[in-house]
Design a protein around this nucleic acid. Structure first.
Lengths: 132, 132
DNA sequence: CCTTGACCTTCCAATCGTTGGAAGCCCCAT
DNA sequence: ATGGGGCTTCCAACGATTGGAAGGTCAAGG
């Protein structure tokens, strides 16, 4: 193999765990890797770029399925940017919803914790709320 | 059975799905239900209270394990409220961390979406970032 | 009494993304 | 050739929930 690296090297180069790379391949997120005669997967610089793309997408909270779509758009030179933007905006909406939900949890708990003396006495507004 | 209800009734009364009630029993979060001669689970008003406690805890984002601890403290009349408060504060911290993480994702994506024309042209800062 | 339909039972599987282990093969260096 | 580290595949677990299949039970109505 002249230009290829092993899965371990690709993992180091992309920041994606070797196990995860195999998983991504198994679910069809990335194409099946070329193999050496003995069965080792071989990766090129292009493959590493795809892996980095995937990793960045995960960091931004995109689900695998959505990343798959983005990879497709990435490889389609004639795609409209509007299509990508639509996916991003939808993801932003979902992030907002999750954030709002978590903030509501935090605020409620914050109020309860404020009302709780937090001393050696058994009286506890937090448990009182949970039992309500 | 004089005072008992079926799992379906307990589900309606507590808001916890019957399947989930069985699951909670299987992992030991709630005690094993009494059974009728034919094997049906029987629930009391007290059981429903526990289920509501669990559901409220889940709504506030507590994990099962932590809820288990809270149920234990709830049943311990001599517990310190400080112990409950400590759990709540730790959970608040974790919620904050998750919120911050999601906000960072949202902010980054927001900037990228702003920079993206979102028209029929292929030029797209979002994909450019992902590929970086 | 018998059927019907709604409920209950258990067991098994899928979700989502990732990580871990076991068993076995491959490659390189000593 | 012996060791050790990386590679392979397969299987399982995480957390919480949901779904389905196959079969038993209960209550109501014909």
């Amino acid at each position: 193999m002249k230009d290829g690296m092993t899965i371990g090297d690709a993992a180091k180069a992309s920041g994606v765990n070797a196990k995860l790379i195999r998983y991504y391949e198994s679910i069809g997120l990335i194409p099946e890797a070329v193999r050496t005669a003995s069965g080792y997967r071989v990766y090129s610089a292009t493959d590493v770029n795809i892996l980095r793309f995937v990793k960045r997408g995960r960091t931004l909270g995109f689900g695998i399925e959505r990343i798959q779509k983005l990879v497709g758009l990435w490889n389609d030179r004639s795609r409209c940017s509007s299509e990508v933007k639509r996916i991003a905006l939808q993801h932003i909406e979902e992030l907002e919803a999750k954030i709002t939900e978590l903030q509501a949890m935090r605020d409620t708990l914050h109020d309860l914790a404020d009302a709780c003396h937090g001393d050696e006495r058994p009286e506890c507004p937090i448990l009182k709320d949970l039992a309500s």
